[in-house]
Design a protein around this nucleic acid. Sequence first.
DNA 1: GCCGTTTTCGGCCCGACTGTTTTCAGTCG
Length: 555
Amino acid sequence: MDKKGLARALKQIATAIELIDSNPFRARAYHIAARAIETSPYSLEELVLEEKARGLKGIGPTMWERIQEYYAHGQLLSQQELLKSVPAGLWDLLTIPGLGTKRVRTLHETLEVTSLSELEYACHENRLLELPGFGPKMQANVLAGIHQVRSRAGHVLLPEALQQANYWLEQVRQWPAVVRAELTGPVRRFTPITNCVALLLAVDGSPQVVLAALREWLEATGVEGCRIEEQDDLALLTTDLPSGPDLKVYLCSTRHFAYYWLLTTGSEAHLTALRSQGLDDRQELKEAADEAAIYGQLGLAFIPPVLREDGEEVKWAASGQLPTLVQASDLPGVLHIHTTYSDGAHSLPEMAVAAAQQGYSYLGIADHSQTASYAGGLTAERVQQQWREIETLNQAQVGARLLKGIESDILPDGSLDYGDDLLAGFDFVIASVHSSLRMPAERMMSRLLAAIAHPAVTMLGHPTNRLLLGRGESAVDMPLLLEAAARHGKAMELNANPHRLDLDWTWCRLAKRLGVKIAVNPDAHRISGLDDVHYGILMAQKAGLTRDDIFIFSQ
DNA sequence: GCCGTTTTCGGCCCGACTGTTTTCAGTCG
């Protein structure tokens, strides 16, 4: 229970109102309240106990009551009736791109559609064509969207996967028969998206007995449909949880732990590469004391899990070329920070102090530029004002040294959002696309190439604009873009927000070959957002990047 | 449901895009 949960609950009410109520402004009030809470710098406790919420614009008497209600009960009890009157399947429909509350409402009220399957059926019967606001293209898009949503079901982003994995780990470690329990599978490799949380348990005695008890315990906690498979001396319990990723629990004996840890961690491509080095031919490897010993026996240096992806890493290890992976501690500072000047939650001094506390010597401020009006983008005057405040703070040395940067929108014609004179005054410029994301490839590329060629631009921000599990990539010819970056001596952002992780790690390898520096930027909108840098570092490691491949600010 | 007054009701954020229309509604960032 935190303020994120509160904001989510308020947004849910807003959506429910839009789906079944008649007053759109009431819904808007909930949306505005949710946003006010999200962007405020206060924790849930401060909002309630110190009554900070009452001072926020958009929080009136009713919202203040709702906030207290959430704090007391962890949910909005007074709104349960409202939520109950929304058919559960409508929430699924809203995840289809192009369907908002208005269209979902139309589908529900006219076609009585209440689930993805019913909607799919209605599409096949061409019944969407007759509805106001729908046509053949919309129907086709909806059908495509249904397939997209289905293929995403059960997948979660890395932070959620880690959270779930750690929860299960804590649980099974309390079991007396469990000698050792570790995270394994894709989450141990820190893959950005996963549909499977896997654990490996070393057990005393018969795995069957432990498995049966485990199944019983899981079913008692409400997890149904456990399946058990056994092969050789490895047992596996799989459950399809009602939502989110599958839980897989592997069991083996203590002496086989390292071997099976390696096997269950994967990836398949990594294991295939290891087999070509003789992984299957050496029985003694099954009894190895730890993973390092197995790699050692195969004539390889230890390959950290984060790197075990496409098999390339085994070639590196075999030729003694395993890179010394970049670490978070290699970053003297970070760039791409939003503040209250645009859509951030914390002020310049608050961010500066927080950054210093985390050991950063500099912090690159990059608020939104003027065209991003929805995010409170800065006019030229506000930019000047921010510069003055930065200079004052730097002179007073209140925290990390603040750099004057900007996240400038790349306008549809490829130009930036300010005149060249103003742009030249920044310490660094991140050029990002925030609108017209679905331009055809040719126009998108000339837009990006124009931006990257602009002398004031330091790097491109979130180059593909994807949102993992949310939005596809813009039409970007990445090799062409990276070559241009190399030619102009520009860096490429690896946006560390776990929803983005953009540039994707697979492209970072090409960037490295071309000599394009990768900037691991947190894109923080609040103090806690600084922590996202760790996800970016993990992706940089996955790509095999070293400290020398990373963009470090210098003047 | 909130806000801000022309202070107790009337109005509520914006620009671009898409797919639908034939001048506009819905969605999205």
